[in-house]
Design a protein around this nucleic acid. Structure first.
Length: 456
RNA sequence: GUGGUUGUAGCUCAGUUGGUUAGAGCGCCUGAUUGUGGUUCAGGAGGUCGUCGGUUCGAGACCGAUCUUCCACCCCA
């Protein structure tokens, strides 16, 4: 016990059942991605540090896993730097690579690097693990999967409309009814900041506003004050705290607040466009909700901001997020390349489906039929039939050892195998098979043809 | 990164103010039943009590460190 091996904090092993369930989610998402015309790419699990560092804010930098250089990396560190004990400075010298933190920044790098081979607008999807050196909590891991769909090379708002539909399509296909797609717009946030004279404090302002439903109006105001936003500015925000009603009436109020801001008006226009289109097109199971307090992951979003909340009653952080970023490739030296994308948090979706018991029972199915092994002669006879069954598309298996019947039957039972075939001397002499239904317990001696038609 | 919390058999958990050989249920193995599983009955295996150190005549229990779990911040899928 003392030597029992373990895995790092925030990581997990997956057993066959879990992998089957995860694959079910992957393939459901992938199906919808492809239906919407996205194409897959993959990027390395680690990137050059400079590709990632500084793209997610200070907090993000802290959460990036750095990879130590190979060789005698300390020999390159100057003594003076060593004595300074400045972790950030030394990290830059001893670590030149880092594990990917999300899929969006590597994608931006990919677009810039391969710009001459890519046909724009480029719609790509990507389903790969990402790593964050965060403290684990429920639904928060240090290694988890994101499933991203992004479009680059088009500023058309129809993309946002399509992405809302994509969210709806995926969650509908997963049977996850009642999700809320929250939408906001960076331009509205910056417009509000402008109106209250806090343009330079946009991030602080939005981070505080984002907490409204969590910590309440008073604490949000206090946090804004602490961050240096003026009292008079905060007073001008008052209508925002009481904003309510449907999309249209919220828009109406926002128009009044943002009358003086060109940026803000543009944002409202964009939101209205998306809402009008979605109203016309309709959604299957999700609903689109304007949420002006939505302000996650703002470091690169410039237009629409999305976040998906699980159905009411499920205690889980957001299960998806995304937005429009006009300047992302700009950091890598490529101008005028607008992108918009959304992300699905596979691991959280898994937890939600598990909690609501929404995995189809068929997900667990492993094999269709198990042949009981009575000895070498019987095994050979069985394998001839098994070969045919496999060709017909049945997942078929022979128990490898001529173990006791009880053990073999028990094995079939525990693996939830629906049918068992028994072949002994009796059957061999008659060119027959005894097929047993493990659920009903019924069994009968049949020919291979009957066996196949029964299984079909 | 800050504050708190958890860890006893494969799993879920008991274990009194520190006191012999640490228990239960489920699961597992064997047999009743050498070509018939899920039910039943009988028997059996399995724990250096997360790890390391300390206090004590004596530690699963008390103290410290560390790892892990979960939670609240921070931030986020």
């Amino acid at each position: 016990m003392a030597q029992k091996p373990s895995i790092p904090k925030g990581t997990r092993d997956f057993n066959p059942e879990q992998v089957a369930k995860r694959n079910y989610i992957f393939s459901t998402i992938q199906n919808q991605f492809e239906k919407f015309g996205f194409q897959p790419i993959e990027t390395p699990s680690f990137e050059n540090s400079e590709t990632l560092m500084g793209k997610y804010g200070d907090e993000g930098d802290r959460l990036i896993f750095k990879i130590l250089n190979s060789g005698d990396y300390l020999s390159k560190v100057e003594n003076s730097l060593f004595k300074e004990k400045d972790s950030n400075k030394i990290t830059q010298i001893i670590s030149e690579k880092a594990l990917r933190y999300d899929l969006t920044v590597p994608f931006a790098r990919y677009v810039v690097q391969h710009q001459n081979e890519i046909e724009f607008p480029f719609k790509r999807y990507q389903m790969q693990p990402v790593w964050r050196a965060d403290r684990p909590q429920k639904g928060r891991f240090r290694e988890f999967y994101q499933c991203d769909a992004d479009v680059v090379g088009s500023t058309s708002l129809w993309q946002e409309v399509e992405l809302v539909q994509l969210y709806d399509a995926v969650f509908t296909a997963l049977g996850l009814n009642g999700t809320t797609i929250k939408i906001n717009n960076r331009k509205i946030l910056s417009g509000i900041a402008e109106v209250i004279g806090a343009s330079d404090k946009l991030i602080d302002f939005t981070v505080a506003l984002d907490k409204l439903d969590k910590i309440g109006e008073e604490k949000v105001k206090q946090e804004m004050l602490d961050k240096g936003i003026s009292q008079s500015g905060i007073e001008r925000l008052q209508p925002l705290f009481t904003l309510s009603g449907d999309f249209g009436s919220q828009i109406k109020e926002l128009k009044a607040i943002l009358n003086a801001s060109e940026d803000g008006k543009k944002g409202i226009e964009e939101l209205e466009f998306i809402d009008n289109a979605i109203s016309e097109l309709g959604l299957q199971t999700a609903r689109l909700q304007l949420d002006v307090t939505l302000a996650r992951g703002l470091n690169y979003y410039t237009g629409a901001i999305f976040e998906v909340a699980a159905p009411e009653g499920v205690n889980m952080g957001s299960i998806g997020g995304g937005g429009r970023y006009d300047d992302l490739t700009g950091i890598f030296g490529m101008k005028d390349m607008s992108g918009v994308g959304i992300s699905f948090g596979l691991d959280r979706i898994y937890l939600v489906l598990e909690e609501l018991d929404l995995f189809p029972v068929t997900v667990n199915k492993n094999i269709d039929v198990l042949f009981i092994n009575f000895g070498d002669k019987e095994a050979l006879y069985s394998l001839k039939a098994i070969k045919i069954l496999r060709d017909k598309g049945f997942n078929t298996e022979l128990y490898p050892d001529a173990a006791k019947m009880k053990k073999q039957m028990n094995h079939a039972n525990k693996r939830n195998i629906p049918f068992v075939v028994l072949v002994g001397e009796q059957e061999m002499s008659k060119d027959a098979f005894t097929l047993k239904n493990m659920i009903s317990g019924e069994q009968s001696e049949v020919t291979l043809d009957t066996l196949i038609s029964t299984l079909t």
